[in-house]
């Protein structure tokens, strides 16, 4: 039973790992920190997997656990992102088959989001992932209305950073 559960977990995680990588990119500023956060998320996901009953999709549950881990880890550590060299912030978003303008846009977007606070980061991330408000509210453990209000504020902040 345990083995079966484990193997399902590993398959699901492997398949959806890109979600975690994106979160790590937003919340960390170098490869080491990225790996640390990724590991922390893996630990949290596995620790809580027995409580995951499959009443939501694995990916939905993954968003919640991973963001919680990122936010709590981010709170614990000193806010290193702000003091980092900005050019080091966007590491390894490079790909040959990726359009140049889009690449620049993406880098600018990451750079801007990284300047937001931990909760706003999560909100914007879920917005960009095209999640409905209901899911955003559930993921962050806030009410639907609150999610909308907070989201509007976060968007305003992001706009200001993107177009100063």
């Amino acid at each position: 039973m345990q083995k079966e559960l484990e193997s399902k977990f590993l398959t699901d995680f492997e398949q959806h790992q890109n979600i975690v990588h994106k979160i790590c990119r937003l919340y960390t500023s170098n490869q080491d920190a990225h790996n640390d956060l990724f590991q922390e998320v893996a630990i949290q996901l596995w620790k809580n997997y027995s409580k995951f009953r499959g009443d939501s999709k694995f990916s939905t549950w993954m968003y919640r656990v991973a963001l919680n881990a990122a936010i709590s880890l981010y709170r614990k550590s000193t806010r290193t992102v702000k003091t980092q060299d900005i050019s080091a912030l966007i590491y390894k978003i490079e790909s040959k088959d990726y359009d140049d303008t889009e690449e620049l846009q993406l880098k600018a977007l990451y750079k801007a989001i990284q300047q937001l606070n931990d909760i706003d980061k999560a909100l914007i991330f879920l917005y960009l992932e095209d999640k409905p408000y209901k899911e955003i509210a559930d993921t962050l453990g806030i009410s639907n209305v609150n999610a909308r209000v907070k989201m509007n504020r976060a968007k305003e902040k992001l706009k200001k950073v993107l177009n100063p």
């Binding site: 590993l10 492997e14 790992q17 596995w46 390894k92 095209d130």
Partner: peptide
């Protein structure tokens, strides 16, 4: 540029190059 337009950019971003294998995930967890 409107934020809505960034969604496409976001969606098109390349996948992580350092993919983690099942064995790695097991080890981490």
């Amino acid at each position: 540029m409107e934020l809505e337009n960034y969604k496409k950019t976001w969606k098109n971003q390349p996948e992580e190059t350092n993919k983690v294998s099942k064995v790695d995930i097991y080890r981490m967890a």
